[in-house]
Design a binder for these strands. Structure first.
Lengths: 169, 169
DNA sequence: ACCTGAACACCGTTCAAGT
DNA sequence: ACCTGAACACCGTTCAAGT
């Protein structure tokens, strides 16, 4: 036996995070993950219900890390907006796992999603509709940037400045 | 032999479109597509270089259909914005294939992407930065709506009205 | 309690072989 | 020119069998 102790739930989580951040979501397969833990894929199912549970863990982690970054940002609309972009660009795989695959609500810690939503609403300082529009703007710009949809010569700093102007409307 | 003529390039395209629109991108496998054409998957490779070529065809089709819908919309910012949302919600799988998987630029008709970008810039009637922010806003709202990210009681019509107000800033 | 090999139903793709 | 079966390297997941 290669392992005497076997992989704990925590080791599974930390290796899946390392795999996600280094190679992306597509590379996060049960077989690749098992390799890193020096076990075979079927053994993972003794610790975890399935791949979804791992994805849900990463979503929960991503959401709380994101919330931390937003809380840490200076308390101005401009600073918060730039923090949103900076976090997403620095953590594209975590951003992807929380926003490009279905959110596994059943497996997420109670109140996590609603807490972040409330935070977004609070920091816009206005009504729900306004907050949702702001979120749409931030998410859309980030998503298009990560997807490489803007032309290479686009000045996205300028684009974000323009977008931030809109937020006060 | 089940087929006397064999599937033409056009039949491959139309069946892949039908498969995409009825069952979504994940169901658009070479084997499922081959089944619809009453051939085996390897036979597809005599007509098509691979799955990417089919995806590229669908992206080109989706982009031009979207451009058509935008052109047809009444010539006001509000009407254009609502047309953007309406098209995306009515064609979620086409929207996904053009915006949630990498754009296969090498395989797209010359000038298609830049043409649509130019159209978006033109209809905002302002500078590139403004146009990009507007696109970000529309795309973000649509993407979050399709992903089911807004709470069920959210009044998205109101959210869009609020968003449209921002556009004039 | 934990790990394993074998298996099942999938994927995209290649290739020698048939007509 | 077109289609095929068999194969390769992948997926997530199940399960009987081993320790």
């Amino acid at each position: 036996m290669a392992n005497t102790s076997g992989p704990t739930r925590e080791r599974i989580f930390s290796e899946s995070l390392a795999l996600l951040e280094s190679k992306g979501l597509a590379a996060l397969s049960m077989r690749n993950l098992a390799d890193r833990l020096h076990i075979k894929a079927p053994s993972l199912y003794k610790h975890v219900e399935g791949r979804d549970e791992i994805i849900a863990d990463l979503q929960a982690y991503g959401i709380s890390k994101f919330a931390e970054a937003m809380t840490a940002a200076k308390n101005s609309k401009r600073a918060k907006a730039l923090a949103y972009r900076a976090w997403a660009i620095k953590n594209p795989h975590l951003y992807e796992v929380t926003l490009k695959v279905p959110l596994l609500r059943d497996r997420l810690p109670e109140g996590l999603e609603s807490g972040v939503t409330a935070m977004i609403i609070e920091l816009t300082g206005k009504d729900h509709e306004h907050a949702r529009a702001v979120w749409g703007l931030m998410h859309g710009l980030v998503d298009l940037e990560i997807a490489g949809r803007f032309p290479p010569d686009a000045d996205l700093d300028k684009t974000w400045s323009r977008a931030i102007q809109m937020l006060n409307q």
